[in-house]
Design a protein around this nucleic acid. Structure first.
Lengths: 236, 236
DNA sequence: GAGCATTTGTCCGTATGTATT
DNA sequence: CAATACATACGGACAAATGCT
């Protein structure tokens, strides 16, 4: 044969999947096995390949479903509003508080904020869902010089950006870097991933556009199968 | 058992691999099978997992070898010199011309260059190697208003950036975006990847810093197992 | 809650093909 | 040519999660 049986099967399934709607269920491994006259192992590895291409999402005991992936632009000018970006992509955002604490800021965070070593700062952990699936995990440190009552504000507003704006700030991502890396164990757990899995990693510093006061330092890990980060910048 | 046999095996192998030097050979699947008392399939899928983590590189008929991955920073200020970045990471760069042609520039390229539709422009395809392995594939369009004799210059200098500088320009990446995406078939072939494989994709516009004249528009696909792109920007 | 069928997850053994040395 | 090592494929078995009765 010109190419291995799996490759052929992957092509056929990929075409079929692309013609389906997000959330729809694809044939089970057993059905694929019978229909295409291959062994379970072959059918399985083909479906695994589709998963590697982020075309499907598999749930043990239930089935395999067509996956959707949204574009997530990251640039200087754009404020880091999870809700806004997800909605702009036509999907349903949701965030839940996954952890909270006031504790001494780590050295690198504290020096950015311009606060004495050991100063307490608010730290939030949030979990972002897209269309009901865990997609992003945020770890955020807030500058106590800027947003003393943010804890309260966050209960009213759905996004950090809105909370900032309500406090009279105009948040802007002034510094950032992004890459793909292996997520720490506790992040994998939160995102429902196996250990040592690859994720997007975006670190950013958000400052007030007028005063240049650093408002927040955040780290965000995102599932590759849920979002496609697009990093960019332009001189204009 | 607390966790599946594969997971345990992956951990053990990952630790062993991290303690080895780049290029060294790891035990064969058969040796792993015997040593850890697992089936060939289990040993194999563990090694596949190491490959997914970019820790090893497998060569049929030869063996599996410890892989090295270099950081590849992308930012506004940094000129896109493949050689410089690879050397800075302590690895051996090499580029070869993979294709060349003078043909009418596509519309999006032409409009950026400010040339009439259908104007001929130089297009280069280059293949970048890191430590002897295919790592990046570049597709570059050059502005005929800026670098008429670049074809000649490129035979003298090892990098595009140097050729520009020799022509009196100070090249700077003025606009760019980067993400991870499935590479086109011809790119996968060049990079020695199976079809429909994920790669880094970086598109950038390089302009002269003084005149703001666009010099080059390039698209670069890079193997995830060879480079770790780090995108970033800062207000300073 | 218990029981059952379905579906994916893990694991084993075996055989053959293909590329390299 | 032979040995080695990875690539592909088959078949069978059981575990774990889910959803339904």
């Amino acid at each position: 044969m010109a190419q291995p049986a799996v490759a052929e099967l992957i092509d056929l399934l990929a075409i079929a999947v692309r013609g389906m709607q997000a959330g729809q269920r694809i044939p089970s491994e057993h059905q694929i096995m019978v229909k295409y006259q291959v062994s379970r192992a072959t059918a399985r590895s083909a479906v695994e390949a589709l998963e590697d291409l982020y075309l499907v999402r598999r749930v043990q005991g239930t089935g395999t479903f067509v996956n959707r992936r949204i574009d997530y632009p990251i640039s200087q000018s754009r404020a880091p509003s999870f809700h806004g970006i997800v909605r702009a992509a036509g999907a349903q955002p949701r965030t839940v508080l996954a952890g909270k604490g006031i504790s001494p800021a780590p050295e690198d965070v504290g020096s950015r904020f311009g606060i004495p070593p050991g100063t307490d700062a608010l730290r939030l952990e949030r979990l972002g869902y897209i269309d009901g699936f865990e997609a992003c995990f945020f770890e955020e440190w807030f500058n106590p010089r800027a947003v003393a009552n943010l804890d309260v504000a966050l209960r009213v507003f759905e996004s950090v950006a809105e909370a900032f704006e309500a406090s009279g700030f105009t948040p802007e991502r002034t510094e950032w870097f992004g890459t793909v890396d292996i997520a720490p164990a506790h992040v994998c757990t939160r995102l429902g991933l196996p250990r040592n899995h690859q994720t997007w990693l975006v670190e950013s510093i958000v400052s007030d556009v007028d005063t240049e006061l650093p408002l927040m330092i955040s780290r965000a890990w995102s599932r590759l199968d849920q979002v496609r980060m697009v990093f960019g910048a332009s001189a204009g």
